[in-house]
Amino acid sequence: MSSITAAGDRAATKVTNTKVIQPAWVRVVHWVNAVAIVLMIMSGWQIYNASPLFNFTFSSSITLGGWLGGGIMWHLAAMWLLVINGLVYLTLGMVTGRFRKKLLPISAKGVLDDTKAAVTGKLSHADLSTYNQVQRLLYTGIIVVGILIVLSGLAIWKPVQLQYLTALFGGYDTARYVHFFMMAAIVGFLVIHVALALIVPKSLRAMIIGR
């Protein structure tokens, strides 16, 4: 009887280990997005240095482009990659029902409970196929941030042609601040995202091989 039970446990473990956590399309858009965002951030810092909003600039060692013109060229190239990839992600996320299944529902109590569990080291990471409330809030928030950074970027890029969009942000100067703070939010998200991937390495494995 014990041998049968052991065999059953091994079979159950095998099924769990081969369960598809991240489908192929999610993995592709995730890594394309990662490349595009890094290029956008580094080239954006190069552009920022040409006309700083605050009393600091970014080190040339972490910028891309070498000069203002080079930074703009890299930024625009990466922008199209990010926008096209983002539209694919949003479309498939809605069509496949992934957003509804993964990101909803979100409640204040759920977020507080999961935050408390995470801080005390009691938050379970056994089932990677289900996001906890904190993850749902962060992933939903970063989608909103992504939309805002693209729209504010367009308002800065084409302030005359897209004057109504620029006006919606309160003008060109305000759009620059919105763009900067959305960039800061993305950088903060990336730091947390990478840290969690290192803490729970099986989540990184799932994003590479899907299982």
Rank of each mutant, 00 (worst) to 15 (best):
Met1Cys: 07
Ser3Leu: 12
Thr5Gly: 08
Ala7Gln: 12
Gly8Gln: 10
Gly8Cys: 02
Ala11Glu: 10
Ala11Asn: 03
Ala12Phe: 05
Thr13Asn: 04
Lys14Val: 03
Thr16Val: 01
Lys19Gly: 05
Val20Leu: 11
Pro23Leu: 07
Val26Met: 02
Val29Ile: 13
His30Cys: 15
His30Leu: 12
His30Lys: 13
Trp31Asp: 10
Val32Ser: 11
Asn33Ile: 10
Val35Gln: 08
Val38Glu: 10
Leu39Phe: 15
Met42Cys: 14
Trp45Arg: 08
Ile47Phe: 08
Ile47Tyr: 11
Tyr48Leu: 07
Tyr48Gly: 09
Ala50Tyr: 01
Ser51Leu: 06
Phe54Tyr: 14
Phe58Ala: 06
Phe58Gln: 07
Ser59Thr: 13
Ser60Leu: 03
Ser61Arg: 14
Ile62Thr: 06
Gly65Ser: 03
Gly66Trp: 09
Gly69Ala: 10
Gly71Val: 02
His75Glu: 11
Ala77Asn: 12
Ala77Trp: 15
Met79His: 06
Trp80His: 08
Ile84Phe: 15
Leu87Asp: 09
Leu87Met: 14
Val88Ser: 08
Val88Leu: 15
Val88Ile: 15
Leu90Cys: 04
Leu92Thr: 02
Gly93Thr: 08
Met94Asp: 04
Gly97Met: 11
Lys101Gln: 06
Lys102Val: 03
Lys102Phe: 01
Lys102Ile: 00
Lys102Cys: 00
Leu104Cys: 10
Ile106Tyr: 01
Ala108His: 11
Ala108Trp: 12
Ala108Val: 15
Lys109Ala: 15
Lys109Val: 10
Asp113Ile: 07
Asp113Ala: 14
Asp113Gly: 04
Ala117Met: 04
Val119Asn: 00
Gly121Ala: 07
Leu123Gly: 09
Ser124Ile: 10
Ala126Asp: 15
Thr130Tyr: 06
Gln133Thr: 00
Val134Leu: 06
Val134His: 01
Leu137Asp: 04
Leu138Tyr: 05
Thr140Ser: 14
Thr140Glu: 01
Thr140Asn: 09
Gly141Gln: 13
Ile142Asp: 05
Ile143Trp: 12
Ile143Ser: 10
Val144Pro: 08
Val145Glu: 08
Leu148Phe: 15
Leu148Arg: 03
Val150Asn: 08
Ser152Phe: 04
Leu154Arg: 03
Ile156Arg: 03
Ile156His: 01
Lys158Glu: 13
Lys158Met: 13
Val160Arg: 03
Val160Cys: 01
Val160His: 06
Tyr164Cys: 01
Thr166Ser: 04
Gly170Gln: 03
Gly171Asp: 04
Asp173Glu: 10
Val178Lys: 04
Val178Phe: 14
His179Asp: 05
Phe180Ser: 04
Phe181Leu: 08
Val187Ile: 14
Val187Thr: 02
Gly188Leu: 00
Gly188Ala: 00
Gly188His: 02
Phe189Ala: 03
Leu190Gln: 03
Leu190Asp: 01
Val191Trp: 03
His193Arg: 00
His193Ile: 05
Ala195Ile: 02
Ala195Lys: 05
Leu196Met: 14
Val200Ala: 08
Lys202Asp: 13
Leu204Pro: 05
Arg205Trp: 09
Met207Gln: 12
Ile208Ser: 07
Ile209Arg: 06
Gly210Ile: 09
Arg211Thr: 07
